[in-house]
Design a protein around this nucleic acid. Structure first.
Lengths: 193, 193
DNA sequence: GTCTATACTTGGATAGAC
DNA sequence: GTCTATCCAAGTATAGAC
């Protein structure tokens, strides 16, 4: 399996398009033909870069998680306060949703998980694991600094990411702009001491 | 378009199977062939009952919302306390999730909304609208009785249903049993005065 | 790296017999 | 209400030329 850091510029354009397609229509909602049309090439050219759809999406999800981790570092670097970090974290989801009501890639794939190749499932699982651990640590720090209510940090982390993911699903379902940012604001208003 | 209350027993079995398929694999994840195999009939027999997939799923979603409303009445009848009502409401989602990690039908369809016929989209929207209004009223009552924190009830309603929907998506993505019930518990622990 | 041509399968849908 | 037979389009994938 290819690694996302070793792909050519052409392959990268394919990955970019495929990623946004999944966020809007899901794994089962797009085809190589759709990518081909948008990128401006033919179907077999995509197979040259990614032999199967499973491989394409696996690589793409690895890249997504990698970039997300980089953004987490950026959130940490730009914000000292745990509360500000949580707000900045929510902004990552808001930025996604603000772009054509895109869902979190792994949120969409999570919903479709029963239809996906195992290599993708493992990546989705890893994405959430990383996020939950990061959130748990930030929340724990916030509690130690008495900025956040004292409750099990693991539960709060699950609630936080679930609320962000869910706000996008419900927001899309209603064609509403009420998304992750508002959800996070309301939740943090409950959590701040 | 057929109405769900007028369908024959055979049609009802088809709707039952299609409903659970959507909850597990999404609109784009199943075919008439899948339904046929599970029900034990042939593809064209399904077309006899529902000319198109769009019609089948539209009717099915109408039935889902109708049944959900009935359950809301049941929740109201069985619980006087607004807090208990919210807990019982969350249990509706938990019961779904506990069955093979099924998602809320409209949560799944909401994620796929860009790929669906407009007649389905309208039903999904209606489902969420009904739920949000119901939640808002319960929450408002809870606030009047000083059982719940005072915050904008509309925002709390969005957060509540979003957290439930999202807990299922994340829970599936991680293959975890951490679902709606735990999310609701954590959230209500924040909301109770 | 991209193309044309093609193979094979599945998916949605229809016609018409029983 | 269900079946067989069939149609057509789309989806995934491969072979081989440029």
């Amino acid at each position: 399996m290819k690694h996302f850091s070793e792909i050519s510029p052409s392959a990268e354009r394919i990955v970019d398009v495929a990623e946004s397609l999944i966020q809007n229509v899901g794994f089962n909602g797009f085809s190589y033909e759709d990518i081909a049309r948008i990128v401006g090439i033919k179907k077999p050219s995509i197979h040259h870069h990614f032999a199967t759809k499973a491989e394409l999406v696996t690589v793409l999800t690895q890249r997504y998680t990698h970039r997300f981790r980089e953004q987490l570092l950026h959130v940490e670097a730009g914000n000292r306060n745990p509360l500000e970090r949580l707000r900045a974290y929510a902004q990552l989801f808001e930025a996604t949703y603000a772009t054509q009501q895109r869902l979190c890639l792994c949120g969409m794939l999570g919903a479709e998980i029963d239809t996906l190749p195992e290599s993708i499932n493992a990546e989705v699982k890893r994405f959430f694991k990383i996020n939950l651990e990061w959130l748990r640590d930030i929340i724990t720090t916030g509690q130690q600094q008495q900025l956040l209510k004292t409750m099990p940090a693991e539960e709060m982390a699950m609630l936080f990411i679930g609320a962000l993911e869910g706000s996008m699903v419900v927001g899309r379902g209603m064609n509403s702009d009420h998304g992750p940012q508002k959800a996070a604001k309301t939740l943090l208003d409950c959590w701040t001491v």
